[in-house]
Structure formats: C-alpha cells, structure tokens
Write a protein that binds this DNA or RNA. Structure first.
Lengths: 93, 93
DNA sequence: TTATTATATAGCTATATGGCTAAAAACAAA
DNA sequence: TTTGTTTTTAGCCATATAGCTATATAATAA
C-alpha cells in the first residue's frame, strides 16, 4: 500500500475533503468554501490528495472539478482490514 | 475519532509494530530487534502509539511488555469504514 | 486587448516529525 | 552498595508539514 495514501489521510482537512467528495464531484472553489482556510491552503491539500491518487481533477472551462478515486480509497480500506482487522487468535502471551 | 490515532498509524514503523503486537505482547527490546533503527528511536515510536491509546505497557521486572489495545484499533477501523467505506450512491454529478 | 474569475504555484514562517547519541531511571543480582 | 540490564528521556539536527500572502496561469467575456 502506498505510503502517501496514509500521509494524505492523516490530515483532518483532507479527510473532510474526501468525505465531501464522497457525495459527488466538486470544484476546487466549492471545496474551499467548506473551510475557513485560505484558498491556496485548500489547493495544496487537494494536490496532496491528488499525488496520493485519492482524487483526480479535470478542467471544465474556468473551473477544475475534483472527484474521488473510489478505487484507491477502497483499496486502502481493504489493506487496513487485511492487516489490522479481524481477531488475534494466535496470541502468544 | 482521535486525531492522534491517525497520526500514529501514518508511520510505517509504527504500523509494523502494531502488526507485531497483533501476534501477541512483546517487550520493548523484542520489538526493537525487528528494526534497524536505534533502540531509543523505537522507544519513541512506542510512546507515540501509547499516547494514541493503541498500545498499553506493563512493567515486568526489568522488562516492559507492550500489548495491543485491540479496542482502539478496531474502533479506528470501524470509524474509517463508517466514514469512507461503502458506496457513494448519492452522487450529484 | 483588457479585465475578470478560478485556481495553482512560489516563497516564506512556524511547528512537527523522526532520526541519532548520551544520559538518566528502574529494577535485579551480587 | 555496586554492577549490569532494560528502557526511557533529554537534547540535538535535518527534513517535512501546514499555514499564510503575493504572484502566476488559464480560461472566458467584454
């Protein structure tokens, strides 16, 4: 599993962006409106998410629409469950 | 969900420690032996995990035994699934 | 072309992180 | 008490991170 996904998901602002995008694609501006941070700050968070592969962007005229890469997110969750989920029957102590 | 759990799990060394402890409790030294890092470095990682509530420690004579706090780990996974798992039927775009 | 809007990038600062070595603390044994 | 063992803590350094403002870029409209 790509380390950058963990780093991306470790920040609360970015997790909130991911949650927003779960409800459908949004422009960078729409996303920024949900936060009190300056617009460039949100833009940087978006680029971190993009680098991790968690979102993709697509220009639509003046706007840039961001959408969730559901596959990466679900693969991350699957990896987590595989590695940390379930029981620990083989306890030694 | 406690932010410190995300930060703790964002580091690969700490994730490996958690995986080790899934197989049963281990002393600080046993844990350190699994890494090439200096022992105090591993000790600091353990204290990060402890602060996040992901592990508990217990002195046994000269040794300190660490064990996984399964509850916190499972609650974290449940939180992740609740917030990011499942479908996104309510797409808008 | 000029102006406007949307967004990203550059450059800065402050703080956090993760590594190290050296020293302290806690306990056991002699 | 002294010594040895295990582990943590302190202090340092280099790098990463997250915020900001100012500026650049891209597209559209006038």
């Amino acid at each position: 599993m790509n380390e950058s996904v963990f780093k991306a998901m470790a920040d609360p602002t970015r997790r909130k962006i991911v949650e927003l995008l779960k409800q459908g694609p949004k422009t960078a501006g729409e996303i920024a409106d949900h936060f009190t941070h300056a617009q460039p700050t949100v833009s940087r968070h978006l680029s971190v998410l993009k680098n991790a592969g968690l979102v993709v962007d697509q220009r639509e005229g003046t706007f840039i629409v961001y959408r969730l890469n559901t596959t990466i997110l679900q693969e991350w969750l699957a990896w987590l469950l595989e590695h940390f989920g379930g029981d620990q029957k083989h306890e030694k102590r």
